[in-house]
Design a protein around this nucleic acid. Structure first.
Length: 498
RNA sequence: GCCCCGUUAGCUCAUCUGGUAGAGCGCCGGACUUUUAAUCCGGUGGGGCGGGUUCGAGUCCCGCACGGGGCACCA
């Protein structure tokens, strides 16, 4: 539907007579039910079993076999067949779907008619005996039932479901009602997050919570959202990363910390980008980026296992490893390390005949563009890209043997970046210089740079142990492990225009 | 921000060159005691918004909104 149509006002309802009538029918039924029985809609319905446990427990039942085993289920009415003196209903809960057999000779005329006059989408609780129909469908013979809630609005099509992408994202509840795939995907998301937490917890990490509202943003190169604190009468930023605060926790001696939560970046929206997204960052004293690469492999493997991933990507260790400069040279023939200023790199790009915007870009942007446009899309299988230029990585420690590089990797899979890690820069004076260099880059045309964070530098001055840190994009990992091609499919309520 | 495509009933979809907009599901009424996209009969409901061209616009033109894809931006 067009987004311009707003619900609510009498004018809006009258222009959609059909829907208004449907709602009126359902509301009248709800009122009749309430009038006929003061307890028509109970406040609770205890001892409900998941449908799937009943399906599993009676998988052995032969066609036509009946039991007197009573079970209680509850869910939403998804379909209804037959009438007269017997009817079949499909009841759906979070775990699955089961058929109900309603018989007038079991329920009596009044209750039978009350049950069969329900609408698709209504919520129903049932006590019944398990049987398998002659057609082989596991079924509950309805012995007693409670109407739990009335759906005033019609549900999506019982067979075709809801396919309109816009409605699926704006009205996620309808998507969840109509599409089992959607329900499963978000259940998988929860399992994946739980697996990552559980992995880190098991490795001695402690989960911490650092400010979302920050006086100064940092830890990534991105534009922030700004907000305002009234009592303090000052502007604050929504965090773009948790990095700097987590490192202060490492300085403080917490040794292994992680935070899993939302970051906010005020940038474009795409199938890979939502303005608020979920990231886990972990930091670990006495480890370097090699150690963290191993950890990422383990964490992702745990996540893949948790959701039973069986797709094309091979997350079994060890992942492919390439170098930043080497992968660019292989893809484009350009040696970025031999062209260390914007002028000469731009010339090399032009000479190579690459269709790329180069005007006004500083060296780091040019080098990063080469990677993201000519290398990243081809990285389908999980791959680490190692050893980035120092200009791109103001928070990473200088490479132990390669001049001009830092010890940093990014992990890619499915043509997307999923993680980023460093041997952390722990030298306070070097960090101060990097911040200054960032400010200089900004004047050379960089859109974003790392703001100078004096409090962070002072924290480093307390002495920080050699450490490794990782940031892993949860939404993108969910995309990969559930086969979603858009981040909007793995975020329950993605950002949409009003 | 730019380019391309899309928007028809509550849902899923039709509607050849401009000429009274159809179906299935749902919902309402009726038949049916093992159906499963139940079936059968009858009924109900619609062109995203705003302009323009035309005797006549869902269809052609312009603008807007929203969505999808791409670019830019963005690790």
């Amino acid at each position: 539907m067009g987004g311009s149509e707003q619900e609510g006002g009498p004018a809006g309802e009258s222009s959609r007579h059909g829907l208004a009538e449907l709602i009126a029918e359902r509301r009248a039924k709800a009122q009749r039910l309430a009038a006929s029985d003061p307890e028509a809609f109970p406040y609770a319905y205890p001892d409900v079993e998941p449908i799937s446990t009943i399906l599993d427990a009676y998988a052995h039942l032969a066609d036509g076999e009946e039991t007197e085993d009573r079970h209680r289920v509850a869910g939403r009415i998804a379909a209804r067949r037959g009438a007269g003196r017997a009817a079949f209903l499909d009841l759906v809960d979070r775990s699955g779907k089961i058929q109900l057999h309603a018989r007038v000779d079991v329920l009596g005329k009044e209750a039978f008619e009350r049950l069969t006059s329900l609408d698709l989408g209504d919520l129903l609780g049932v006590d019944g005996a398990v049987l398998r129909s002659r057609h082989g469908e596991l079924t509950l013979r309805v012995d007693a039932f409670r109407i739990l809630a009335k759906a005033l609005r019609p549900p999506p099509d019982k067979h075709h479901g809801l396919s309109d992408v816009e409605t699926r994202h704006r009205r996620r509840e309808l998507d969840l009602i109509a599409n089992e795939d959607t329900r499963r995907r978000f259940a998988d998301r929860a399992k994946l997050i739980s697996a990552v937490r559980s992995y880190l917890d098991g490795q001695g990490f402690i989960e911490v919570e650092t400010p979302v509202l920050q006086p100064l943003y940092g830890g990534a190169l991105a534009r922030p959202f700004t907000t305002h604190h009234n009592a303090l009468d000052r502007d604050l930023y929504l965090r773009i990363a948790t990095e700097l605060y987590l490192k202060r926790c490492i300085v403080g001696g917490l040794e292994r910390v992680y935070e899993l939560g939302k970051d906010f970046r005020n940038e474009g929206i795409s199938h890979k980008h939502n303005p608020e997204f979920t990231m886990v960052e972990w930091y670990e004293a006495y480890a370097d980026y090699e150690e963290e690469a191993r950890r990422l492999e383990e964490a992702v493997r745990a996540a893949a296992q948790a959701v039973g991933y069986s797709g094309e990507l091979d997350f079994s260790s060890p992942w492919q490893r390439v170098s930043f400069a080497g992968s660019i040279e292989e893809a484009t023939g350009i040696d970025v390390m031999a062209n260390r200023d914007a002028e000469s790199l731009r010339a090399a790009i032009v000479a190579a005949g690459l269709a790329m915007q180069t005007e006004g870009l500083a060296w780091p942007q040019l080098a990063d563009d080469l990677l993201s446009k000519h290398v990243e899309p081809s990285l389908q299988q999980p791959t680490f890209v190692f050893d980035y230029p120092v200009e791109l990585s103001p928070l990473a420690r200088e490479h132990r043997s390669e001049e001009g590089l830092v010890e940093r990797w990014e992990a890619f899979a499915g043509g997307m970046e999923i993680a980023n890690a460093f041997s952390e820069l722990i030298d306070a004076d070097a960090q101060r210089e990097r911040f200054v260099a960032q400010q200089r880059l900004e004047t050379l045309g960089a859109e974003e740079s790392q703001p100078y964070d004096e409090l962070f530098v002072e924290a480093l001055e307390q002495g920080m142990p050699p450490s490794g840190g990782v940031g892993l994009g949860i939404d993108r990992l969910v995309m990969l492990l559930t086969g979603a091609d858009s981040i909007r499919e793995v975020v329950l309520f993605p950002a949409m225009r009003d």
